[in-house]
Amino acid sequence: MPEVELTLEWPDGGRSRLYSPSTVILEHLAPGQTVTVAELRAKGTLALRQASERVRARYGFACTRADEEERRLLERAAPFGDRERVGILSA
């Protein structure tokens, strides 16, 4: 499956990488977008769960790395307010 890594720029100026085992994430989060932290949590969680299910459909097991990425995304987003903005910089 084609993997995707996005670079996120957080409200504090910090950057992090978001890994997905599937391009389905690009249907939810695209380079060049700016989204609120609340949107990032919702879209990122949905996209990573869909990506994990695509792995399950193809290989017979879920992607544990997608689960870990979801946990890391939510943890990284926690200090910020729902309306603060996050930039999606690259894929």
Results as ranks from 00 to 15, higher is better:
S20C: 09
T36E: 13
V37M: 07
R54N: 09
P79N: 04
A47T: 12
Q33E: 15
P31N: 09
T34S: 15
P79G: 04
A91F: 02
K43A: 14
A66W: 08
A62Q: 11
H28A: 15
R49C: 01
E39M: 08
A42Y: 02
G32F: 03
E39R: 11
C63N: 15
T7V: 13
L29N: 10
V55P: 00
R71M: 09
R56I: 01
I88L: 15
V55M: 06
L40I: 08
L40N: 13
L73K: 04
R76S: 04
P11T: 05
Q50S: 08
E75S: 10
V24Q: 05
V37H: 04
L74N: 15
R85M: 14
G44Y: 08
R54G: 05
S22L: 01
A62E: 15
L40M: 10
R65C: 05
L46P: 00
A57H: 01
C63G: 12
E27I: 00
L26N: 12
A78H: 07
G13E: 12
E27W: 06
R72W: 07
M1E: 11
E70Q: 15
E39P: 02
E5H: 10
T34V: 13
H28V: 07
Y19W: 15
A47S: 11
T45I: 01
Y59A: 10
L8H: 07
E53N: 11
F80C: 04
A38I: 02
E53Q: 11
L46R: 15
F80V: 01
S90P: 01
T23L: 02
P11M: 08
G44W: 06
P79W: 06
E3D: 07
T64R: 14
R76H: 08
T45W: 00
L74M: 04
T7Y: 02
E5C: 02
R17I: 09
L8T: 07
T23F: 00
L46M: 12
E75Y: 02
V86R: 11
T7P: 00
L18E: 04
R65H: 09
L6Q: 13
V37K: 06
L26R: 11
A51W: 01
R56G: 00
D12Y: 07
E68K: 10
M1H: 12
A57S: 04
R71A: 14
R58V: 02
A47F: 07
R72H: 07
E69G: 02
S22I: 00
R65K: 14
A62D: 13
Y59S: 10
T36V: 04
E84F: 00
L29I: 09
L89K: 05
F80W: 04
L73I: 02
C63P: 14
G13Q: 04
L74V: 06
E3A: 06
T7C: 01
F61W: 15
T23G: 11
